[in-house]
Design a binder for these strands. Structure first.
Length: 731
DNA sequence: AGCACGCCGACT
DNA sequence: GTCGGCGTGCTC
């Protein structure tokens, strides 16, 4: 049984199941069991492979929380393949808000302020009787762990009372309210009824007094919505292929233009619900989730239910979790937090915008550092469901997994983009300016004709770097050696890594010249330059700010600009993306340019000093096959996923401890076929450095085992901390 | 000898 | 994760 303690250091432990509670305890059952005199929540993973070790008995069984056995199988696989402790993975399938720190008082001791049967938090007990007494009480069973799911708030409902209809001939307001209530099935939350009819409480009170309705308290309604049917046309072109995928099961990539993804999602969902199964749709952002929910409510035939699941739901999340687990929602659309939602009848998983980075939590932050696509693929296999990953430009690691044996990913017939803008690649070699005349002319032409131009600049602030005009040296942060950026063009420079602030101006550290000027293309500078050249204000859209976003020309980050449609899209500095470090830079640049072309109805204009770059030219003509042909061999040669697998371990602690741990403990212990790199120091301003170790092997699981080994090693070594990430999106 | 501290392994 | 045992090294 895996106890819900989030650590690499604790293996599953064995317990006896008392004869009385034995029925129905099996893989996935949630139980309470003792460990070192304290009771803990745990999930049964299976019978003990070497029976006889168990000495303690399970305290209680929580069938209401249990994990479906197939989903447990997926969790075991995910934990094993991505070096995430099983309890962390399992936590993501349990109800959100589950409070594992509550106790049921079984036999209150003398002087306790509670009677038997009350449920109290650990903190309250500690305060009342002290930590030692709590331990003793726990050990002898006077209190027992009783994890609690937050109670749903009760609200007042108005319910039509059967029997003779009251005479409302002389009460038009009451008649109207009563009519609406009957039309809506005879029961509504009073607040909904009143706001829909615009009536006051007195009307309702009067109806209740006459006996026409009764006012009862019921749990707040769960945000699970009924489909209305009607607008099905968008999904028609996708129905056959979606039906094939859902019928066959297993993982698929489906290259679908971005603006047609909702149709493909609806087709996948429909194929699942028509089989009587559920569909889980995973999108990178809340906004996309909500949009897809609205789309599905219209696009699916009437008679099904759809729910959203993401962090913005607050207390409703627990209720949606229960509705999905109990099969009351046919389709659920969620962010990565929904990736491990238990489904009563799993039929299809669908990953929207598959290559999007938001599908994976960053290591060390809340959420599992595993890409939603990988979670979905593991679930599809374990739960016997289809997995459909949508994007016009799928990640190469997924796409290239196509032809190979076990992890084979099928491809559904790609849908060609409808309409492609004319593309202009402007050669900036030999030009010192940021904005070419071609670019400015294009902006004038489109803006003058009533069109809208979106300008993509993926660097916030005013200038990415400040350089010396005389010797060309770049001003760097004294702490991190990273170029200082100018957030607003004013008198202050800031380090993008550590946030340290330095005064602008002064002299060049290399040659002493005072001719320092901003360089590097950042969004504020482009905005200012454009406004000056065009003679009209330019809008701004970034994650944090929106200004004049109705202006004919709007500059912003790729994520924000690509959310909308434009007559022309401009990328003034595609080189910053092309030259970014890492093997994935080419792929990411291709995707940026491709998506920009999709978002532009008339013109895509790209400025570059590498006008012959193959990925740039391929993206300009929408040629994904060319990207595959050039990049997949590079991934293969470099030993990158899916041809090999790697893990990054970040070790925090004193240098000698790190080196000793890696050389004398890790290296001798890793299995054959796993390469272990030398630790590389990563310097950080103001904070001690940390070390990175790269692990690599042909197969995923050996890499994950080595990564877990690092994590366990660090967990058992005082002063050493490790964070591991298997197959990160970027190394 | 007596005690503080940190490391390590057990916990089922 | 949390605890206790034990070895090291220091103090009385």
């Amino acid at each position: 049984m895996a106890l819900m303690i989030p650590t690499h250091a604790l293996p599953p432990l064995s317990y006896l199941v008392p004869a009385g509670t034995g029925s129905g305890v099996g893989p996935g059952t949630v139980v309470v069991a003792p460990l070192s005199g304290r009771s803990r929540l745990g999930v049964v993973v299976g019978p003990d492979p070497e029976p006889g070790r168990a000495r303690e008995e399970i305290c209680s069984v929580r069938h209401d929380l249990s994990v479906p056995p197939d989903l447990l199988g997926a969790c075991l696989r995910i934990s094993g393949s991505y070096a995430v402790p099983l309890p962390n993975v399992l936590r993501a399938t349990l109800p959100p808000g589950l409070d594992a720190g509550r106790f049921l008082v079984v036999r209150p001791g003398g002087g306790w302020p509670w009677e038997s049967g009350s449920v109290v938090s650990r903190a309250e007990i500690k305060k009342a009787i002290g930590a030692d007494a709590l331990r003793a009480a726990e050990a002898e069973g006077a209190v027992t762990l009783r994890p609690a799911v937050p109670e749903r708030k009760a609200v007042e409902w108005s319910v039509v009372r059967g029997g003779a209809e009251p005479d409302l001939a002389r009460a038009p307001r009451q008649r109207e309210v009563f009519g609406v209530l009957k039309d809506r099935g005879g029961a509504l939350p009073s607040s909904v009824l009143l706001s829909e009819t615009g009536a006051g409480r007195s009307v309702l009170r009067e109806l209740a007094r006459r006996g026409a309705v009764t006012l009862v308290r019921r749990p707040e309604p769960v945000p699970v919505f009924d489909t209305s049917g009607g607008g099905e046309s968008g999904l028609k072109p996708f129905r056959r292929d979606a039906g094939r995928a859902v019928g066959r099961g297993g993982p698929f990539v489906w290259r679908v233009p971005t603006d047609e993804q909702p149709g493909a999602v609806a087709a996948v969902a429909r194929a699942a619900v028509e089989e009587g199964e559920q569909a889980l749709i995973l999108a990178p952002e809340r906004e996309t989730v909500d949009r897809l929910v609205r789309h599905l409510l219209r696009a699916l035939p009437a008679g099904y239910t759809v729910a959203a699941y993401h962090g913005g739901l607050g207390k409703d999340r627990t209720a949606v979790h229960a509705a999905v687990r109990d099969g009351e929602a046919d389709v659920v659309v969620g962010t990565r937090a929904a990736a491990l939602l238990p489904l009563a009848r799993p039929g299809a998983f669908c990953v929207v915008d598959e290559p999007d980075g938001s599908h994976r939590a960053e290591a060390g932050y809340e959420g599992l550092p595993i890409h939603t696509r990988d979670v979905a693929v593991a679930r599809g296999r374990a739960e016997g469901a289809a997995v459909v990953c949508l994007s016009p430009v799928p990640s190469l690691r997924l796409f290239a997994a196509g032809g190979r044996g076990r992890g084979r990913v099928g491809e559904l017939p790609p849908r060609a983009p409808v309409g492609w803008p004319s593309v202009r690649v402007v050669d900036m070699r030999g030009s010192g300016s940021v904005l070419s005349s071609t670019l400015l002319d294009a902006c004038r032409r489109f803006a003058g004709g009533g069109g809208r131009v979106g300008v993509i600049v993926d660097r916030l602030g005013y200038a990415a770097v400040v350089t010396c005009n005389r010797c060309g040296a770049v001003r760097r942060c004294p702490g991190c050696d990273v170029p200082l950026a100018s957030p607003d063009g004013s008198s202050l420079l800031a380090c993008p890594r550590c946030g340290r602030r330095e005064p602008n101006g002064g002299r060049c550290a290399e040659c002493g010249s005072d001719r320092l000027s901003p360089a590097g293309i950042a969004v504020e500078r482009v905005r200012e330059g454009l406004a000056e050249a065009l003679g009209s204000p330019v809008g701004l859209i970034t994650a944090g700010r929106r200004e004049l976003d109705g202006a004919p020309v709007v500059a912003g980050t790729a994520r924000c600009v690509l959310r909308e449609g434009w007559d022309a899209v401009v990328i003034p500095d595609v080189d910053s993306s092309l030259q970014a470090s890492g093997l994935g830079a080419t792929e990411r640049s291709f995707r940026l340019v491709y998506r920009a072309a999709e978002a532009a109805s008339g013109l895509l204009l790209v400025q570059t000093r590498a006008p012959e770059h193959h990925a740039l030219l391929a993206a300009a003509r929408g040629d994904y096959a060319a990207l595959v042909a050039s990049e997949v061999p590079r991934l293969r040669a470099a030993g990158y996923p899916p041809f090999a697998h790697l893990a990054v371990a970040s070790l925090h602690g004193p240098e000698e401890k790190v080196l000793r741990a890696v050389e004398s403990r890790l290296r001798p212990a890793v299995e054959a076929g796993v390469e272990v790199s030398d630790p590389v120091g990563v310097a950080r301003a103001g904070r001690p450095p940390y070390w990175k170790v790269l692990l690599r092997a042909r197969e995923l699981d050996p890499v994950a085992r080595a990564a877990s080994l690092v994590a366990r090693m660090a967990a058992g070594t005082h002063g050493l901390q490790a964070r591991v990430e298997v197959d990160p999106e970027e190394v």
